[in-house]
């Protein structure tokens, strides 16, 4: 039986990814509606990041085989995106007149955009149940019939 990916540390990932999904969606939405013309590439990248965060959150919450694949694909694209955009934003800042979530390797967000996909990929790949595994639920009343 596959290990659950949406409990334990996975639930922390779900929470933080959910926050990022909301934050990035709102930010991209505001930017695109209010001032799309100023930096269309930046804002479209922000929107792409937002979609990836949403899909990754959904995949993690689902936690089944499809959800894992979905989350894994998102983490991979995010990692590539944050590395590529981060590098480009440092080398050619003139291409990014306004910051995206991924600019400077996510420096505007405490580098979480760089750390999260790495954490997520490690989490999905971990070979065995976490050694710190603790009971998943507070003890449900024992079935008296068992003894």
């Amino acid at each position: 039986m596959p290990r659950p990916v949406n409990t334990g540390l996975g639930r922390v990932l779900v929470f933080v990814y959910g926050l990022f999904a909301v934050a990035a969606t709102c930010r991209a939405g505001v930017q695109i509606i209010m001032k799309f013309g100023e930096a269309p590439v930046s804002y479209l990248l922000s929107a792409l990041a937002a979609v990836l965060y949403i899909v990754a959150t959904v995949g993690l919450v689902r936690g089944d085989a499809g959800g894992r694949r979905l989350a894994q694909a998102c983490f991979t694209v995010e990692l590539i995106g944050v590395l590529a955009v981060g590098t480009l934003s440092v080398l050619q800042p003139q291409d990014f007149p306004d910051a995206t979530v991924w600019s400077g390797f996510g420096e505007g967000y405490g580098y979480l955009p760089l750390v999260l996909p790495v954490l997520g990929l490690i989490w999905l790949r971990r070979p065995s149940p976490a050694p710190v595994a603790v009971p998943e639920r507070p003890a449900a009343p024992e079935q008296p019939a068992a003894r």
Binding site: R11, V12, V14, F15, A23, V132, P138
Partner: peptide, 29 residues
């Protein structure tokens, strides 16, 4: 809106995870 909802939301999600990771969620929020 985020600031008003975040602490309570973190508490709710944190209580869904009655392990050390529930405390991590509340701490991160």
């Amino acid at each position: 809106l985020t600031m008003l909802l975040l602490p309570a939301g973190a508490w709710i999600v944190g209580r869904m995870e009655p392990t050390r990771f529930g405390s991590v969620i509340i701490g991160v929020a």
